[in-house]
Structure formats: structure tokens, C-alpha cells
């Protein structure tokens, strides 16, 4: 068994899990943070994307033990004091979701994308950067619009 101490959404947590436990399972089943989804389980769809030490990673392709000492943010950690993160608000405003299953991963990817590439990001770059996030409803058009809109707001708030 592995005892993992880490920070999840700003709170120190500790959990004891099997060595083979995936990080996404620790988040969902041990911590009850079910906003991080498992879509494909083969590292392709991006529904499980979280931030680990500031980088967007697929939580289905990390062992929980690898998160020892890590600073983790999940979709549940984006809103502050009941106010949606600008990216969440933009997805709502632009209807950037249909069934909503891919949405947590899309939003976590999008937030890191803007952090990394800045708020001047163009549409083509957004589409290219979404390569690791699959929307089975094929609702990409509004997702891209939402990200572009939020990018501007994230820039003006910075």
C-alpha cells in the first residue's frame, strides 16, 4: 500500500491506496471528487485532465503514488467563493457543452492552455491544442468560442 500526501484544491489530504491505484481513482473514489471523468481509460480522450504542479495531465495515466507531494487542482477547485472561473462562465455563456461529459477535461485543458500560451491565442491554435480532448457530441465549435472568449477575460483580469 502507498500513503500519498498531497494538496488537492488547496487542501492538504492524505490517502492510503494500493500501489496500482490510478490517480483518477484516488480522486474520484477515495476523495469523492467525481468531477474528473474517466472517458476512454486509454489516455486518449482527456476527460480526466487535472492540473498537477501546474501542468495539465491525464489523471488516468498516473499512479496515485506518483502524486506524493504534488499540488493538484481538479475541476472542483476552479470556482472561488461560489463564483465560477471565467473559463467555466464562458462555457456556460457560449453553450460550450452538449452532454457535458468531456467538459471538466476541456475546461482544465483550456485553463492551462491560456496560462501557457497567453490570452492572445488564436482560433487555430486553440483547435490544435485541443488535440488531447475528445468531445463525442462533436460540439467543438462552441467549445473553441468559449475558450477564446475566456482567454480575453483571463487576460484582462491578470
Amino acid at each position: 500500500m502507498a500513503t500519498v500526501s498531497m494538496t488537492v484544491n488547496g487542501k492538504a489530504v492524505q490517502a492510503t491506496v494500493e500501489d496500482r491505484t490510478l490517480l483518477v481513482d484516488l480522486l474520484r473514489e477515495t476523495l469523492g471528487l467525481t468531477g474528473t471523468h474517466v472517458g476512454c481509460d486509454t489516455s486518449q480522450c482527456g476527460a480526466c485532465v487535472i492540473h498537477m504542479n501546474g501542468r495539465a495531465v491525464k489523471a488516468c495515466t498516473k499512479l496515485a503514488a506518483q502524486a506524493e507531494g504534488a499540488d493538484i487542482t481538479t475541476i472542483e477547485g476552479l470556482a472561488t467563493d461560489g463564483a465560477l472561473h471565467p473559463m467555466q462562465e464562458a462555457f456556460r455563456e457560449h453553450h460550450g457543452l452538449q452532454c457535458g461529459f468531456c467538459t471538466p477535461g476541456m475546461i482544465m485543458s483550456a485553463v492551462e492552455m491560456i496560462d501557457r500560451l497567453g490570452s492572445d491565442i488564436d482560433e487555430a491554435t486553440i483547435r490544435e491544442q485541443l488535440e488531447g480532448n475528445i468531445c463525442r457530441c462533436t460540439g467543438y465549435h462552441n467549445i473553441v468560442k468559449a475558450i477564446q472568449s475566456a482567454a480575453g477575460q483571463m487576460g484582462s483580469n491578470a
Partner: peptide
């Protein structure tokens, strides 16, 4: 891969 793969 994709950005998440490249991060890891």
C-alpha cells in the same frame, strides 16, 4: 501526442 502527453 497532445499537450497532456507532452507534459509527461
Amino acid at each position: 501526442g497532445d499537450p497532456h502527453v507532452r507534459n509527461v
